[in-house]
Amino acid sequence: MRVMISMLAATLAIQPTTAFAQDDDWEFQQDAARKLSVAAVRYDDGKAIIARCQDGDLKLVVVGLPEMAGSVVYLEGRRPDGRRDVQAWNPQSGGGAAALSSGVPARDIRFLRGGGSWALNTLPDAPRTMRASLDLPAQSSNLDRVLTACQRGLQDDRDALPRARFAAAEATPLTGAKSQPPVRRGQVVGVADISCIIRDLRFTDCRADYERPEGAAADSLRQNSRRLEGEDRNALEGTVVYLSTVTERTVRVGP
């Protein structure tokens, strides 16, 4: 039986409070003062799925799966309607529970729309085998409310494209490492999510999927025509790569 998730789900301190909504939709709560919206579902065995938007910051977290090693874990997701996707997850911990955080939350939240099972399997080359199946609510309107609150689309044609998986460790950073004077972290003044399609080992058709404020993605969109080195052309051709940037106003310290 699914149970309601309190607002503390946003920080992984999940506490059941009452029975799950009878209309079999994702449980939804919001805090307008904090610009926070949460849709969640929890299961008797301790697993939980949490979609959260807070002031434009979108996250999708799965709690209760077996702990996975590494900075990125690739899992194949499958839905009863035939959809399949290889998803990238970042292992993390918080509130005493192991969790996986989506690397591309908008796409992965859309993958969860509609009822039925969500099967997750490690890939054949994974160092550890993991299989899980979670039954999702039949309705998805509350999940859509989280996407809408974060100004993400309910549909995206690029969801049908396979995601890029890079062999080279330094393939995806927007900029190379540079020696700079020390700085103190400052106020965030811009965030952007962009996606590009890889053709002939180059980024093409780069577009802003989300930006705040308007124009925050301008520098990122210059990734068009960027060439990838040391990668498999056939494996990457026609795939989509997702990049995120945060711009801060910083203060230099020292002489």
Score class of each variant (00 low, 15 high):
173 P>Y: 08
174 L>P: 02
177 A>H: 03
177 A>G: 04
179 S>Y: 02
181 P>K: 01
181 P>M: 02
181 P>Y: 00
182 P>H: 03
182 P>Q: 05
184 R>N: 07
185 R>N: 02
185 R>P: 00
186 G>L: 00
186 G>S: 03
186 G>Y: 01
187 Q>C: 03
188 V>G: 06
189 V>A: 08
189 V>M: 05
189 V>H: 03
191 V>W: 05
191 V>L: 09
193 D>E: 15
193 D>V: 15
194 I>C: 13
194 I>Y: 10
195 S>M: 10
196 C>D: 07
197 I>G: 05
198 I>T: 06
198 I>D: 02
199 R>L: 05
199 R>H: 11
199 R>C: 04
200 D>V: 00
200 D>P: 04
201 L>K: 01
202 R>W: 01
202 R>F: 01
202 R>I: 02
203 F>R: 03
203 F>V: 01
203 F>G: 00
203 F>Y: 10
204 T>W: 05
205 D>T: 10
205 D>R: 08
206 C>S: 09
207 R>Y: 05
208 A>D: 14
208 A>W: 05
212 R>W: 08
212 R>T: 11
213 P>I: 11
215 G>D: 13
215 G>I: 08
215 G>E: 14
216 A>D: 06
217 A>M: 12
217 A>Q: 10
218 A>P: 06
218 A>N: 12
218 A>K: 15
219 D>L: 12
219 D>M: 10
221 L>C: 04
222 R>S: 05
222 R>M: 07
223 Q>V: 07
223 Q>I: 06
223 Q>Y: 00
224 N>W: 02
224 N>M: 03
225 S>M: 09
226 R>V: 07
227 R>M: 11
227 R>D: 04
227 R>W: 06
229 E>N: 13
230 G>H: 14
230 G>V: 13
231 E>Y: 06
232 D>I: 12
232 D>M: 14
